[in-house]
Design a binder for these strands. Structure first.
Lengths: 209, 209
DNA sequence: AAGATATCTTTACGGCGCATAGATTGCGAC
DNA sequence: GTCGCAATCTATGCGCCGTAAAGATATCTT
């Protein structure tokens, strides 16, 4: 008979060390930055021995992958919220872009782990393409709702990719000091982002012919 | 009186260890990737003791900065070549974008070091804004030559920034396996890049109305 | 109750960044 | 010239890292 407190798959000694390690890693990441994210620091934060994590993750990179996975879920949620609150599909594209960059700016260390992991394996998480509710599909669907011709599947995919790359590039660059004067001139960070997105053509434009 | 062979600032024992270390670092970077780029490995590659680099660089990050600096110079050169060979300013914008991404794709480890260093200090190299021949100015000038109104300085700067961010985002994403089928459908990597840039609006559009 | 198994700790190894101290080398002052 | 000095390089050592191996301990199975 199972204790009803721990939902399922609860390990033996600790309770749920795997979960605790991922949380500890997130805590270290937020507090000390990505460079301080060592396996030993995570184990320390979780209150276990340095070798304990190896019973739940093959190596350090597998732990980081789990952290990144949670990051992609958070990003999905942030984009879903932005899309739900947008008054029109046209506005939605802009809102998605701003929400994307804001997520990256609010969780810089996590965002970095997410893409570092992905680049190392040259592989974005499957959820980006496969999951019906994935962020990628959300952008693609929004493009169609905003007027893109759904028959032109290649163009739709290219436009979605273009939007994603643009947002990613902006997310990585928006923190540089060099752009402070532009943000000021635009009247704040979000207006700056919107202005850049306008120049990027993130807002939907006619796709075919 | 100075020996005319070594131009200037030539050190004593080694000849020019500083130069040799940067070259060794580039070699390690290209051969083993960024994760293998340790100070000790660089010293090993250069044939000196592990502590020798500290007489030429304050710490590891200062060596990486020197490597990154050379990277930015290479990038500048690649963009200058692309701009020089472009038949028209309109074409030049596209050529600059393609050349930028190709540079990143051909020197992935170096490109990563360049931006990792910049993000850590939240500071792009000065040359991007100050130098007259910098890559940033090259893009901005090309935009003006292509028809943007030079009076609208804010818009010009925003458009230049947008183009740069777009290219950077694409450069970082172009390596993901997920886009292989798109490259194939476009008929190769460069046509794929051009198609994405088209959707991004990298090609100049009227700025002011 | 007992053996099997999963979890966690201890210990150890090599590599890392870097600080310190000592050896070596080239240079300027005399 | 040679001698002191400063710049350069080496040797050694510290604490951290990732991770492998072996032993201890708690839980599961039977």
């Amino acid at each position: 008979m199972r204790d009803s407190q721990a939902a399922e798959a609860r390990p033996y000694h600790h309770g749920d060390l795997r979960r605790a390690l991922i949380d500890a890693a997130s805590r270290v990441l937020e507090a000390e930055g990505p460079s301080a994210l060592s396996l030993r620091a995570v184990a320390r934060e979780a209150g276990v021995s340095p070798a304990a994590p190896y019973h739940h993750f093959k190596d350090k990179s597998e732990l980081l992958e789990a952290v990144a996975h949670e990051g992609w879920e958070l990003l999905d949620a942030a984009l879903a919220k932005a899309k739900a609150e947008a008054p029109s599909p046209q506005e939605a594209m802009n809102s998605l872009g701003v929400a994307y960059v804001c997520f990256a700016r609010e969780n810089p260390a996590l965002y970095r782990v997410m893409y570092d992991r992905a680049r190392d394996s040259e592989d974005l998480p499957d959820r980006m393409q496969d999951d019906k509710d994935s962020a990628y599909c959300k952008v693609r669907d929004t493009l169609v709702e905003a007027g893109a011709n759904p028959e032109e599947t290649l163009d739709i995919e290219l436009a979605t990719t273009a939007a994603w790359c643009s947002a990613h590039g902006l997310a990585e660059m928006a923190g540089f000091k060099q752009f402070d004067h532009l943000k000021e001139a635009c009247g704040g960070e979000v207006p700056f982002l919107r202005a850049i997105f306008q120049h990027m053509g993130l807002a939907p434009r006619p796709i075919a012919d």
